[in-house]
């Protein structure tokens, strides 16, 4: 069982309190009616499916209830960082440097 840091509660808690919520930084287009079928398809279905550091969303479901973002290595399951939804997308090179 993983331990996950909730950036809102500022606590590291068991995985059972959290639910996974898919890839992060996929914003719903501001005006959906103006986007092409291909753009809408990409928004709905196309995901990066990376092997390695993955930007993804989690929800502190059995806690504060907040959605937040994380970078987790899909090979090692190690979290490089968790951050609030309105925080900027952290640069991967900075994270890898820090985790060394």
């Amino acid at each position: 069982m993983l331990l996950i840091h909730c950036p809102y509660c500022n606590q590291t808690l068991p995985e059972a309190e959290f639910t996974y919520a898919g890839e992060a930084h996929i914003a719903r287009p501001a005006d959906p009616s103006s986007v092409s079928d291909e753009e809408w398809r990409d928004f709905l279905f196309i995901r990066t499916n990376v092997k390695g550091p993955h930007y993804e969303r989690w929800r502190h479901f059995h806690g504060c209830g907040r959605y937040f973002n994380a970078v987790r290595d899909t090979v090692s399951d190690r979290f490089l960082i968790t951050y609030k939804t309105d925080d900027p997308r952290p640069e991967l090179s900075d994270l890898l440097e820090k985790s060394k």
Partner: peptide
């Protein structure tokens, strides 16, 4: 409720 929270928190804060 989960879906509502998702849109509320992340798309329409």
């Amino acid at each position: 409720l989960n879906m509502m929270e998702d849109y509320f928190q992340t798309e329409w804060p």
